[in-house]
Design a binder for these strands. Structure first.
Length: 574
RNA sequence: GCGCCGGUAGCUUCAACUGGAUAGAGCGCCGGAUUUCGGCUCCGGAGGUUAUGGGUUCGACUCCUAUCCGGCGCACCA
């Protein structure tokens, strides 16, 4: 339980116990009351809107109610020393020295789990799921890191999380990919010239995959594609998935589970799923309207199985079969989601690129239909990444060979910076990624700035021959934080709230923003020593004010916890 | 045409704790500090009708509605 939940439940209980005294008839709204850290210009530790919320339902003037609540709380909660009524009726609360000390010591006790909430959800997070036809490019990066960090965040809160990758190893693109490998193999084995046809993959990595197969599988003859297709498909996919897994590894991402689309089809799961939907009357045989956008050349009016997704809020019903009667990508994906539901996840999350936004309604409809609305299903969309170099746009075109791969990116910028920067923006907003700026060692570079704060802290503990793992606690009698220290404490108290909101809203970007703000406070605290000798931490190799260690340790704990979730390393020296 | 996302300070940068108080950072600009626990910094200042109109609310950047601008998507592809 974090500070806010702890005191809010205490406050709620006191209100309920004393509702007659407070002349409250209706206390239902207590569950939407907020307890939080007040805006920074207000010199208090906690703030609540309790009287604003309760006054309306009970028709009591907010300030009168606030005053009554204030007196009650001061009497009942000894950790509270002072309460002010501000604005329309906010209660601003200041801890007593004892209250402050108890809460800080609590942080020191919890340390690595400080900020975490003991949740017990079961999550499946599907992310990346890049087509297995070649290495990852920069466009995949953002969603990959987003998914990974979101998983870390939910894990930090005590949930069970499976990080999953759906391998689209079925359909025409794979056929083209296998054919490309096949032709490269013939190029190597039979010296046939590779002619790049329209749908084939030209990249150099295809040659490497081909070469490996030729080396390792001497027995296969490769005379006709039809004859060796299944085997070659298997081998080619291993080759391309290894490239992708290597990219992921370098980004610090490890999935728990790789799910193959081909398996789905082979095990007849698609047929079964569609039958299930048919029995619920969500699937019918019929004709679709022609597409509404640009006129399509190969549109044919054919009788086929259709999922009635408009019943669940989609804009149109969706085809489950192609013209030739085989399953569409969507049909397979419905079966895949049915499988996820059957694996008993309470929460399914898909991380998608902006170009797949249009797909969300139909797959959500399918999940609703399959789960009878019992599963939480969320699609998070990551908007585009725009690459810059020295402030100038760096064009990424998908024409052959020109796209920028994850590998190219990592040759320029380290993994830590990439991870931090890809999250330093809300996923709903386009992201500018300037890979010259990221290499700068200045305040402009948030990654550096946060890491530097931690390195500075380590320099202090090094000179004092102390360790950040040492036990430390606050003695309430001697405790009197200065203005800078108070700001730090309040920021530290805010941490569990950041985690809670980030997890509830599935918005991990709040973490890097918070860490940056915390670092600003720490650097300011540090710099005070440059201005005024009184504020220096160390004198003649000894700590000047033993109290100051408290704040240094607090900052270190939270930065560490935050960066762990982000998967960004923290050097002790820089 | 339809759908999704965005529009916040001079800015091709963005936040705002799921409806709260005087809307905050960064860059740039102006003015100061600094022979140091660790240098690549720190402090202060100016700068806002939150795209626009209407609505809900004690209270709106946040919710509803209409309009404008920008991005993405609108297949039997994956």
């Amino acid at each position: 339980m974090n500070i806010f939940e702890n005191y809010l439940s205490k406050i709620s209980k006191i209100i309920i116990d004393n509702k007659d005294h407070l002349k409250l008839k209706n206390v239902e709204k207590l569950n939407i009351v907020n307890l939080e850290v007040p805006p920074s210009h207000i010199n208090f530790d906690l703030s609540t809107n309790i009287s604003l919320v309760l006054s309306k339902a009970n028709k009591i003037e907010p300030k009168t109610l606030a005053n009554n609540i204030k007196n009650l709380l001061l009497k009942k909660i000894h950790h509270f020393e002072k309460i002010d009524i501000a604005g329309p009726g906010f209660l601003n609360i200041k801890f007593s020295k004892e209250g402050l000390a108890i809460n800080i010591n609590d942080i020191f006790r919890n340390k690595r789990s400080y900020g975490s909430k003991k949740s017990k959800g079961k999550f499946n997070i599907e992310f990346v799921s890049a087509n297995p036809t070649g290495p990852m490019h920069v466009g995949h990066c953002r969603g990959a890191i987003f998914g990974d960090v979101l998983s870390n965040l939910l894990l930090f809160n005590g949930n069970k999380v499976i990080k999953e990758y759906y391998i689209n190893d079925y359909g025409n693109q794979i056929k083209n990919f296998v054919e490309s490998v096949y032709l490269r193999i013939r190029e190597i084995k039979f010296k046939e010239k590779f002619v790049a046809k329209e749908n084939l993959y030209p990249g150099n990595y295809i040659k490497e995959i081909a070469l490996k197969i030729v080396k390792n599988k001497k027995k296969i003859k490769f005379e006709k594609l039809d004859e060796c297709f299944e085997e070659l498909k298997k081998l080619s996919l291993i080759g391309s998935m290894n490239l992708i897994k290597e990219d992921l590894r370098k980004l610090g991402i490890k999935h728990d589970y790789f799910f193959s689309e081909t398996d789905l089809v082979k095990k007849n799961l698609v047929t079964k799923t569609i039958k299930k939907l048919q029995s619920k009357n969500y699937v019918e045989e019929g004709f679709l309207e022609p597409p509404k956008g640009e006129p399509s050349k190969n549109w044919k009016k054919v009788k086929r199985l259709i999922f009635k997704s408009t019943k669940f809020g989609d804009d149109a019903d969706r085809a489950l079969q192609k013209n030739d009667g085989s399953w569409t990508y969507f049909a397979n994906d419905v079966a895949y989601h049915s499988n996820k539901i059957n694996r008993n996840f309470e929460n399914l999350i898909n991380i998608l690129g902006a170009d797949h936004t249009g797909y969300i309604k139909r797959i959500s409809a399918a999940v609703k239909a399959l789960s009878e609305n019992k599963v939480n299903f969320n699609c998070k969309v990551c908007q585009l990444v725009k690459l810059y170099k020295n402030g100038k746009p760096f064009k990424m075109s998908k024409r052959e060979g020109e796209f920028i791969s994850v590998q190219d990116l990592l040759n320029e910028v380290d993994k830590d910076s990439v991870r931090f920067m890809m999250l330093n923006r809300s996923n709903d907003v386009e992201l500018d990624f300037d890979f010259e700026k990221i290499k700068e060692k200045t305040k402009d570079n948030p990654v550096y700035y946060v890491q530097y704060a931690y390195a500075r802290i380590n320099s202090i503990t090094r000179s004092l021959k102390k360790n950040l793992n040492d036990k430390i606690s606050v003695n309430p009698i001697l405790f009197s934080p200065n203005e800078y220290e108070q700001k730090i404490i309040r920021k530290i108290f805010e941490w569990p709230k950041i985690i809670e909101v980030a997890a509830n809203k599935l918005e991990p970007h709040k973490i890097p923003f918070y860490l940056y703000e915390l670092s600003i406070l720490f650097h300011a605290y540090w710099s005070k020593g440059n201005e005024d000798i009184k504020f220096k931490f160390i004198e003649n190799g000894k700590i000047k004010r033993p109290e100051s260690l408290i704040f240094i340790y607090l900052v270190a704990i939270v930065i560490k916890n935050g960066m762990n979730i982000l998967g960004v390393s923290l050097p002790n020296k820089m």
